[in-house]
Design a binder for these strands. Structure first.
Lengths: 129, 129
DNA sequence: ATAGGGCTTCCAGTTGCTGGAAGCTCAAGA
DNA sequence: TCTTGAGCTTCCAGCAACTGGAAGCCCTAT
């Protein structure tokens, strides 16, 4: 199967698929004309990658997860560890963003937002700590 | 003042300060020996930038905010607009991360995390949609 | 005089793609 | 049969916002 159809089926841009081949996440065969020839297993892998990326896993995590997926002797604890670490990172990011949100929404509320130059947002950014 | 002390005072790495000069956010003077010579106003600007970055504003937003800060004829509405847009982006990111969090935490909970290969996390990533 | 730390510039790498150029291949229509 | 257009190929560059490192100058202290 050519890259265009694979792109549709796996829900990933062709560019991304080529990139994933570049970094060794998939290894499609090649037709005589030089076109990539994807097997079902490649498509399956790509869809797997797409879902893992949607969950925010880094490419390196994806590589690990894919390896574990293909390793019959894996232990689910290995997978769980990767997921838990990622979950912790997500939690941290959420906390960061929430803190930004809170500060910023207070400032936005305090700002008149009119034609006058006076602005609590700028005042806050400029303040001595 | 040399970059080392400025770095401490503004709470930014020297590398970052040089970078900010590169992209035109600050324009310190130069001493005869070629060293950057920062004025108080430069330090003030850098601290402003540091705080804006802490709130997650992009560099381009920071540039805009800094320009507005120095523009006596600004209207607070301009500032507020920038902040509101950023706030919306933050909200969107939080929503995304929460959705990741929810999915992932369910999967993590469902995974035994033992020595056996069976794993709901991988199963989910591998599932047909 | 020399050792060290601080400063300089420049180049490369990070993450995960994305856009674009130049050029080959293939299928369909005149 | 020729052409046209879509689809494929590779390679190079760029995004954001730094960060690390190398090579080399400058300054102070011993």
């Amino acid at each position: 199967m050519n890259i265009g159809e694979v792109s549709e089926r796996a829900g990933l841009p062709a560019k991304t698929i080529r990139y994933y081949e570049d970094i060794g996440l998939v290894r499609p065969l090649r037709s005589d004309n030089g076109y990539r020839a994807f097997r079902d297993s490649d498509i399956h892998k790509l869809a797997f990658l797409g879902r893992a990326r949607t969950l925010g896993f880094s490419i390196e995590d994806c590589r690990t997860l894919l390896d574990l997926y293909e390793d019959e002797t894996r232990e689910s604890a290995q997978v769980k560890a990767v997921a838990q670490e990622h979950l912790a990172a997500i939690d941290e990011k959420i906390a960061q963003l929430r803190s930004m949100h809170d500060t910023l929404s207070h400032l936005v509320d305090a700002c008149h937002g009119d034609h006058r130059p006076d602005c609590p947002i700028l005042k806050d950014l400029a303040k001595e700590p």
